[in-house]
Simulated scan of single mutants.
Amino acid sequence: MLSFLCRQCQRSTLASVFASRQFSSTSVALARRDKESKIRVPSKKALAAKSRRRAAKVAKAEEKLEKLSLLDAINVLRAVEVASPNSAYELFVKTEIKNGIAVPRGRVNLPREAKAKTEDKILVFAEGRQAEEAKRAGAHIVGGPELVDGVVNNRFKATTILCTPALIRAITPKLGRVLGPLGLMPSERRGTVTDDIAGYIQRIQGSSEWRADKNGSIRLPIALLSFPVEDVVKNIRFFLASVKRATGNSKEDERKTKGQGAKPVTMINKVMLSSRQGPGIRLSDW
């Protein structure tokens, strides 16, 4: 019928038809639509239960993995690397990082270094008598807030940065975002904001810093394959003692905190020893 009308009449007729047509949905369709629009949010109790089940599953899988004693792991890697005496053992420590717990870090002076030490370059924010003491103690760059722009522009490079309490507020606004991600921002918790600048420099001389990454993993070349087994064991035991102190897992911490309330502890989940061509071996007696 529309074919016999002119275009203008066709448009007006179609418009009236669509305007008069009523769209409706059945009760079943509306119920289905309401059900789909509701997103199910699991409760905290359900999330906690799911987390516990996942942790139990991971723990069960971990128990099935073979573990060796430290001496056995060293012997296996020495046999694998018999043609590469200059290869290095690498120690891997996995810690459990949780919200509100700082990334583990510390300093250590191994009984026998696996590689030549790189000299720390120390920058100190201090003025007056403390600045003079820092220079005498061996600091490479010493100054006040005038050094801030040089640090931001990368003109002054350092591996350790110290600051006196009197200057920390002056340097934090500009340096916090620059040095924070690098782990170099002075802080009271780490002991790098102190009035005893000279004493801190003397304590760190001859030692090297280690730190975990954001996932809580610590990797370190711990010894050479050419070292006697006794030296390898000493290095590993010495380093693990440093990690345990930094994470609150040492027996000394247990005695100190006994009866004084809970202290945040960063759990150590596993310790592995490997080499360049050898397998990663989980240790059972760390």
Rank of each mutant, 00 (worst) to 15 (best):
L167D: 02
I171W: 08
S187N: 15
C163T: 07
R190P: 00
T194A: 11
M185N: 03
L175P: 01
R189C: 03
L162P: 12
R169T: 13
T192D: 02
C163M: 06
S187I: 07
P186V: 01
E188Y: 12
P173G: 04
L167M: 09
A158L: 03
T172W: 05
P186H: 00
K174D: 11
K157M: 10
A158C: 05
F156T: 06
I171K: 03
P165T: 03
G176M: 11
G183C: 04
A166S: 15
R190T: 15
L184G: 11
L182E: 15
G176S: 14
A166G: 10
T159G: 09
P181D: 06
T194Q: 11
T194H: 12
P173R: 05
G176Q: 13
T172V: 09
G180L: 04
E188H: 12
R190C: 06
A166T: 14
G191Y: 04
G176L: 13
A166K: 14
E188K: 15
P181Q: 02
S187L: 04
L182T: 08
G191F: 00
I168K: 01
L184M: 10
I171Y: 06
V193N: 06
L182P: 07
K174I: 00
P181R: 00
T160D: 12
G191I: 04
K174N: 10
K157N: 11
S187P: 05
A166C: 01
L175T: 08
R190W: 10
P173E: 05
R177A: 13
A158W: 05
V193T: 13
